[in-house]
Amino acid sequence: MMTLKIMLNETYKGLLIAWNYKFETFLQLVMMGIVFIGIGFIIGGGQLSTGQLTYTLIGYSMWLYSSIVISGMCRDLLGEAQAGTLEQIFMSPVPVSLVLIGRSFATLITATINILLFTIVILLALKVNISLQWQGLVIFIITMAGLFGFGFIIAGATLIFKRVGELAGLTANALLFLNGSMLPVEQFPNWLALFAKTLPTTQGIILLRDTLLKMQPLYELWQDGSLVLLCSQSIIYFGGGLLIFTWCVRRAKLQGTLGYY
């Protein structure tokens, strides 16, 4: 009960702080829209094709989540180290990995609000049509678990190496080209497709397109093994991410560098 309360406390604080930066968030939304339209023009060969935009919008939205989670986790931890509040969090009676999960909920909520606003504006302005299916929500949740697991690895690395901000930014940007957001993974060379499919969100984007655009039910995706692959990846990323984060905390405490930045 106390653990849940501490996690929700972290979520609430994250939302309060995010509200303080609403103007910056609005500017980010505008930027997201401009980049998306630019990508739409490039992929459409100078035209905005509604069918292509629908396809790209699903991938782009998931990439936005990747970008917010990966860069955000690194930036938040470094920011807290600089502000001196990071060490206070580590003096909580509950394991810090649980506090981190609570914080992830705040990131998920704020990211969802931003991306929903962006998506609604795009849907209305460009007359893009996506049929919302509950199966899509299941795929989304499983994909997010994997993505946050990847975020925990970045967060752990931040505690030890400190200067991983640029690497996190690079990783987030590389995902735009590698996770199938813009181009289908099937069009990649085999070796690149194989690598791309191990990345968080790649398999999630494929299955979201299958459920939302091709209307494939979940049991079919389970039977053909693609949903099993997504679940396995997410479990590995989430569990592995928590383990790596916990190991990094232990290492930072041994090195005495926890609050350094």
């Binding site: 604080k13 309060l16 702080i17 303080n20 930066y21 502000a83 001196g84 509040t85 060490e87 206070q88 609050g259």
Partner: peptide, 12 residues
């Protein structure tokens, strides 16, 4: 309360 740090959240 640790040295030389803010210890609390300035935006709150």
């Amino acid at each position: 309360v640790l040295e030389g740090t803010r210890n609390i959240y300035w935006p709150l």
